[in-house]
Design a protein around this nucleic acid. Sequence first.
DNA 1: CCAAATGTTTTCCC
DNA 2: CGGGAAAACATTTG
Length: 257
Amino acid sequence: MPEGLEAEIWRAAIAVTTGRTITAAWVDERVAPPGFVPTVRDATITAVRRAGKVVLVDTDGPTIGLHFGMTGRVVVDGWAPIVRLSYASGRDDAAWNRLCLWTGPIDRPPAVRFNDPRRFGHVSLDPDVSALGPDMFAITASSLHEVVCRRRAAVKAVLLDQHVVAGLGNLCVDEVLWWAGIVPHRTADQVTFDETRRLVTVMRRRLRVMLRRGGSTTGVIDPLVRAELPACPRDGAPLRRAQIGGRTTVWCPEHQR
DNA sequence: CCAAATGTTTTCCC
DNA sequence: CGGGAAAACATTTG
C-alpha cells in the first residue's frame, strides 16, 4: 500500500474536485461509519488535504477521511493516478469498490472511487489525526532526534511509527535508511544527531524524487530488488533481507552500519 | 497448496 | 501505565 507518497498522489488527483458538490454517494457499509451517505450528500468539497497516509476531503459539512490500508486505491473521474500497486492486484473489480462519490449524473463515472480488494482500508468522518507525528516532508532533524534518541526499538520500527513521523511506510523507510547508510536493526537511541540530520536530508530529497516518479515503489530498494536481492547498487555487496519491526526489510550490510 | 504482501489495531508480556 | 513484539485482520498473487 499505499504509503504517504501514494496518499499525496491521490490527494492531488482528488483536489480537482474542489468546488464541486456531492450529488450522490455509495459506501460499503463494512468500511464506513453508520450514516455516512446521508451525512456527505449535498456537501460541497472545499479542499483536499493529506495527513500522513490519510487523505482528507474537506467539505462544507464533514471531512471525509480515506485510509488506504495495504491495497486501497483511488480513481478520479474515471482516471487512476496509480494504475497498478505492487503487492496488490492489477485488476479493478467493481466488487472491491468501497466508496463512490458523484458530483454529477450518476450514470457517469463517480468523481471519486475508492477501491480496495483486501479491505484493510476504511473511510471515516472527521478523523482524528492529532496523534500523528510531523509529516515526512516537514519534520526537522531536531524534532525527530528528540523522539528517536529515547526509543530502544530498531530505528526501522521507530520510523514506521506514525506517531513519530507521519507518512513513511515500509518501502520508504528501507529506502531512506539505504541512502542514509544506517542499518535498520540498529537501536534508535544509538542513532546520533548527525545521522538523524542525514536521515532528514535524505528523506526530503529522495521522497521528492520518488513522488515525482510515481510513489514508494520507485526507489532503489524497489519491489524487484526486494524480491531478487541483487548486489547493492552502491557498493556491490549482497543485499540482505529479514523481518524487522514485523515487516520485510532489505538493506546493505556493507554501507549501512 | 503454500507463502508472502506497501498497514493499522489489538493483544500479550515485561 | 508504557514500550515493544507478535498476532490478527481479508484477499490476491506468484
